[in-house]
Amino acid sequence: MRIAFVDGGTYYHHATYNDPELKVFFDRNIYVLDLPEADLSDVDCLYIASRQNPADLVVARDVIDAFLASGKMVVALGESHCEQWLSNVDWMPGVTNFWWWLTPGEDSGLRLNEPDHGLFSYITLDDATWHRHGTLSVPPGAKSLINAIEGGSVLYDDSSSSGRRIVSTLDPCYHHGSYFMPATTGFLKGFLPWLKQGAPASM
């Protein structure tokens, strides 16, 4: 899988992309303002890192749609309001509990929904557990890989229409690039090798 990292120019995107342990998984860096004019013929996957300015991606919507229409893959991570620039995404805001882990025995509220999915050969639920920024409705035909107990998904795999989308409300790049929350580093160290291997859906 040839992966392009879509970079919003922030410090956390810079830190994530340039992390020597992660950079090996990316084939290109595309500054988000260059995306509308980018030639993506040598790319199989657009990795749209978390916490982007949604307005920048709305401008690139035609390019993203065409990329998917050619059968390719888009990874849309949290806090970038992808419901504004990725069709068929329904995001529901929720109250983010940043502090749940301070209470002994407290439940994160996340559940594996497809434990036999190929991603879970690379990460565990603990690697995806920090907090979530709302939840997603799962499009018909898509598979939620991680559910929230209040309903909805925090990460799903959708091949139900043109191309393939991995959509999540998790924001690993922000926290990894801020050197904050070790689980996010664990997530990326598993998620990116999985992606690089072609994102196998089965184990």
Binding site: G8, G9, T10, Y11, Y12, H14
Partner: peptide, 8 residues
């Protein structure tokens, strides 16, 4: 702001 696009 801290989350500003520094590249811009």
């Amino acid at each position: 702001e801290a989350h500003v696009d520094q590249k811009a």
